[in-house]
């Protein structure tokens, strides 16, 4: 919630006119996806962002293997590398060495690289899954509101307005703090991850819902929908076969832009101490731990901070690129 998702920033472009008619019947007969890909390929910055995103996903998946390659593990303590007087790592730059490439943590001497790699798992997992939750909720409710209109639309729209105006971080923290420690057979970090995914996703769906509703609202009056309806197509068919495919573009754009926001939220929660539990590594909790040492061991703060920065920036660059690529007006 540090950086709320602002659809206004993009509303002018991506949302505007996915215009299925235009692209599908364009002279070359190229699909929207193909056009978008062509455009994206030309956007070097976005490609770099995309490459980094891909790399991060791979890192998250293969974190154990990568860590094993360096001969370290995230929770092994190396107290012999810690200055007993100050609790900070011996040696310059937070104890960086051939063995510990990014140095070690103050106090415990755990390998920072290993913890960063494992921390990526938490960030990526929460970022993606909570976006997924938001997309599912947002698409369903947004479609319902837009397609059926009337009182259903009124209720859903009001709820969305309300959620958007809520002090969300506050609610998320309160919610997490009253959640029990054991649920559905999960304990400790597992519960926290689940709760974070669900809660962040829950507060994110109105962003998707709003867009979807607007799209459906304009699409349902289009001729081709009318045509389908007059041919006797059922509601389910119209929504599933005619409407949803046209929603893919804006949803893709918003999902890509939502993931970095969610990653920031997860980091903020862990920073505030309501995120994952020790000894699980998370970038946010590393940063919060580093606050105490920001003068004596600045590297410990800089490393997770930069990790968050690069990740979020890469997602944002990529998301921007995808949006521009899917924008038929091509304002760029």
């Amino acid at each position: 919630m540090t950086a709320p998702l602002h659809e206004e920033t993009t509303a002018k472009t991506a949302v505007a006119e996915p215009a299925p008619g235009k692209t599908e019947t364009s002279i070359e007969g190229r699909s929207l996806g193909r056009i978008a890909w062509e455009r994206l390929k030309r956007d070097k910055v976005a490609l770099v962002g995309g490459a980094i995103v891909l790399l991060l996903i791979l890192v998250a998946i293969f974190a154990p293997a990568l860590t094993a390659l360096t001969g370290q593990s995230p929770n092994e303590r190396h107290e012999n590398l810690i200055d007993p007087l100050f609790s900070t790592p011996k040696g310059a730059f937070g104890g960086m060495s051939g063995e510990h490439l990014l140095g070690v943590e103050p106090v415990s001497g755990r390998d920072i690289l290993a913890r960063i790699l494992y921390g990526a798992r938490v960030s990526i997992l929460v970022g993606f899954l909570s976006a997924f939750v938001a997309v599912v909720f947002g698409t369903i409710l947004g479609t319902l509101a837009g397609y059926f209109g009337g009182w259903l639309d009124a209720v859903i729209s009001r709820v969305m307005d309300m959620l958007l105006a809520f002090p969300q971080l506050l609610f998320i923290i309160s919610l997490i703090s009253v959640m029990p420690n054991n649920m559905f057979g999960l304990t400790g970090t597992g519960v926290r991850l689940l709760v974070m995914i669900v809660v962040i996703g829950f507060f994110g769906w109105p962003y998707i819902g709003r867009i979807v509703r607007g799209q459906v609202l304009s699409l349902r009056e289009r001729e081709y929908i009318e045509a389908a309806r007059s041919l006797g197509a059922g509601r389910g068919y119209i929504i599933g076969k005619e409407l949803l495919p046209n929603l893919v573009a804006p949803i893709t754009v918003y999902t890509t832009l939502m993931i970095p926001t969610n990653i920031l939220t997860e980091a903020a929660l862990s920073f505030l101490g309501v995120g994952v539990k020790p000894p699980t590594a998370s970038w946010g909790s590393m940063l919060s731990d580093a606050v105490t040492y920001y003068e004596s061991d600045p590297m410990y703060m800089i490393i997770p901070g930069v990790a968050i920065f690069i990740t979020v920036l890469a997602f944002n660059l990529f998301g921007d690129g995808v949006r521009d690529a899917l924008d038929p007006k091509g304002t760029r």
Binding site: R77, E79, I82, D83, P84, L85, F86, S87, V107, S108
Partner: peptide, 13 residues
Amino acid sequence: HKSVQTARGGPTA
């Protein structure tokens, strides 16, 4: 115990 002591800040702190 040594590890706990280090975690607490070492023998001085």
